[in-house]
Simulated assay, not measured.
Amino acid sequence: MENEYHVRLSSAEIANLWTTYQGDTMSICVFNYFLKHVDDEEVKQLMAHALDVSQQHVEMIRKIMKVEEIHIPQGFGEQDVNLGAGRLFTDVFYLHYMKQMAKGGLETYSRLLPDIYRKDIRSFFSKCLATTIELHEKVTKLMLDKGIAVRPPHIPEPKKVEFVEKQSFMLEGLGKGRPLTGLEISNLYKNVKTNELGSALATGFSQVVESKKLAKYILRGKEIATKHVRIFSDYLGNDSLPVPTSIDETVTDSTEAPFSDKLISYHFNLMTYSGIGNYGSAIAQSQRSDLAIDYSRLMAEILKYGEDGLNIMINNGWLEKPPMAAERKS
Rank of each mutant, 00 (worst) to 15 (best):
S330D: 05
K44A: 13
T226E: 13
H154D: 13
Y266E: 10
I61C: 00
K63S: 12
I61Y: 06
I148V: 15
E157A: 12
I155K: 14
L236C: 08
K36Y: 13
A200P: 00
G280F: 10
G317A: 05
R220T: 08
I116G: 09
L219E: 12
L241I: 04
N195C: 07
H71E: 09
L197T: 01
T20Q: 15
G75R: 01
L95G: 09
L298Q: 11
H49N: 13
R122K: 14
I148W: 10
W318N: 02
T25A: 11
L270E: 14
N187A: 00
G86P: 02
L144T: 06
K99E: 15
V58A: 12
E13A: 08
F169A: 03
V92F: 01
I64L: 03
R288C: 07
L241E: 05
Y94G: 03
L174K: 06
G306Q: 06
G104E: 15
M324A: 05
N278E: 05
G104A: 15
V67P: 02
T90K: 09
A50E: 13
S265A: 15
K193A: 06
G277E: 07
D234N: 15
E42Y: 14
L35W: 14
T140S: 15
E134Y: 12
L46F: 12
D308W: 06
Y217H: 11
L236T: 08
K176Q: 04
Q207D: 03
L241P: 02
T245G: 03
S296C: 09
K160Y: 12
V67H: 13
D39F: 10
I28M: 11
A326W: 00
L174S: 02
E249W: 00
T90N: 08
L17P: 04
N191Q: 03
T250E: 01
T226G: 10
R297A: 01
E210R: 12
S281E: 01
I72T: 10
K166N: 10
M47T: 15
M313N: 04
A325R: 03
A292D: 12
E184F: 01
G204W: 01
F125E: 09
E59Q: 13
E256W: 10
L142D: 15
I283D: 01
I70N: 02
F259T: 11
S27C: 11
I121T: 05
N191A: 00
Q167S: 08
G317D: 04
N32G: 12
L95D: 09
E307Y: 05
N187F: 03
S246C: 02
Y117S: 13
G317C: 02
H228P: 04
T245C: 08
E210D: 11
L241K: 00
K119F: 01
P114H: 14
A102D: 14
D261V: 09
F268G: 02
I264N: 07
M170V: 08
A292T: 14
